[in-house]
């Protein structure tokens, strides 16, 4: 199962990005293979519609869960119909590595 985590930087030690649509980077983590891929968000500077464009990007990667700080209204509706699980974390000081560790313990 693949999980997308929004990240502020290019390393696993970076903190999570509280925004989904305009997140700096997406870390696509594969739980079974324990591999990850860091993708820059090309929609970061978009005037509008950054959320839906980001949804399309991560949906093409085949993720089933998204970990971020918050999700916009447009994004929420889209992800609901795509049946992608949203996980919103209020503690924005968590790093991507911490999230991955938690997800691994989960399995």
């Amino acid at each position: 199962m693949k999980i997308a985590i929004t990240s502020t930087g290019t390393t696993l030690g970076s903190t999570i990005d509280p925004r989904f649509g305009r997140a700096a980077y997406f870390v696509i983590y594969d739980i079974e293979k324990k591999s990850f891929e860091i993708c820059p968000n090309t929609n970061k500077e978009a005037m509008e519609g950054a959320g839906p464009a980001s949804v399309q990007f991560v949906a093409e990667k085949g993720v089933e869960k998204i970990v971020s700080g918050e999700f916009g209204v447009k994004v929420k509706d889209l992800l609901d119909s795509l049946k992608i699980q949203m996980i919103a974390i209020k503690d924005h000081s968590k790093t991507v590595q911490e999230i991955i560790d938690m997800l691994n313990q989960n399995k």
Binding site: K65, K83, I87, M102
Partner: peptide, 21 residues
């Protein structure tokens, strides 16, 4: 436990936390 909010898109009845189980 981990103060996370999450949705349940696949209508699982026995719900556990998506992050920390």
């Amino acid at each position: 436990d981990c103060d996370a909010f999450f949705t349940n898109p696949n209508d699982i009845v026995d719900i556990t936390c998506a992050l920390c189980a």
